[in-house]
Design a binder for these strands. Sequence first.
DNA 1: GAACCCCTCAACCGAACGATGGAGGCGCCG
DNA 2: CGGCGCCTCCATCGTTCGGTTGAGGGGTTC
Lengths: 207, 207
Amino acid sequence: MTAVRVLLVDDHPIVRAGVRSLFDRRDDVEVVGEAASGEEAIALARHLHPDVVLCDLRLGDGMDGVQTTAALRAQHPAPAVIILTTFDRDAEILGAIEAGASGYLLKDVSPDVIVSAIRQAASGGLVLTPELSERVVEVMRAPRVRLTERELDVLRLLDTGSSNREIAKTLFVTEATVKTHLVHVFEKLGADSRARAVAIARESGLL
Amino acid sequence: MTAVRVLLVDDHPIVRAGVRSLFDRRDDVEVVGEAASGEEAIALARHLHPDVVLCDLRLGDGMDGVQTTAALRAQHPAPAVIILTTFDRDAEILGAIEAGASGYLLKDVSPDVIVSAIRQAASGGLVLTPELSERVVEVMRAPRVRLTERELDVLRLLDTGSSNREIAKTLFVTEATVKTHLVHVFEKLGADSRARAVAIARESGLL
DNA sequence: GAACCCCTCAACCGAACGATGGAGGCGCCG
DNA sequence: CGGCGCCTCCATCGTTCGGTTGAGGGGTTC
């Protein structure tokens, strides 16, 4: 059996070194490249054709992990993508999976979990830690909250502590319009007040 | 010259492995131990007497990096502590320095910066990346916002979107009391509304 | 064209919010 | 002891801010 070819994507050199060292003494996994950004990862993957890409979600200023995943999955042949990250916000997990990730691991898992995840992903499987898979189905089952662009605008301004009047001013609309958007945001989020809305939005990762 | 003895503290095995691999081929830095939690770090340091402790800020569920730093610095002999973390919230940086950390590095710095930081810290120096040191003096110069415990309680509940009435109920006080606290919070934060207060508090890392 | 969604707006009402000016009790520290 | 800071609470006031309801135009999809 030939070794699984892996591409590492993380903006922290230290983490890359850490992951790389996991495979140093193994002959079934081979690190064929490292990238510090999504852009770099895509370019590298185009030439290296890795079997699996191990990708962080937060990648500094450029593309994020979800965008990178989507771009990678659009390539031919498409590598399997495993998200390896510190954060476990529902929206990001869901986003990553929707974008075509075959796995989602938190960085505090033990090294051998990562190794086995890579092997499994290389053979086409889906990899989720038990707690995460539980959450995933839970969130999947709950109807996804879809906010319109405008509603997101007011929500973001809400988060800065703006009043309706201020939001109206910066969005160049009437205060009445803002209120209408807010009503819809409240409905969709199940909130009964602006304050609660931001709190909920924050929890579900919309902000 | 004898090698600098270093203790690694991070809840992610991967990061520990990464940092460790930085020193593998160097003879001037020696990793004498690893800890996955603050508690473990303190216990280990008591026996190992490292010269420098490299410590993450977020350490899972137990003690955080700031608490760990304070405890380590209280030992005799006290190791130098360098915070190595992903986050750069003002409050945490300040807290770490106040707790006696001799350095604060972001995980995206290049490996050799870490190495030289360790050497510098071992000889008693203070280590800050240029951008950070700028921010530090800036925040130092600005009068520190000190909220009382109760005011923080109110602020935290505010963040969840609670109304004054609800806050009063969960804190077992009158609505009047809540309002008084809020007035003080507003004064200290320079806010003119509850929403802005949360926003400001969030920015300055009080939440 | 009808149904639908999104953005826009008006007018109303009420409550909650923030401001103001107090007051008393408690613990700590010089 | 005498102050000081913190927590607690009272009453009042105004008014703005927020949330509700209802409604119209533009774009789309079938």
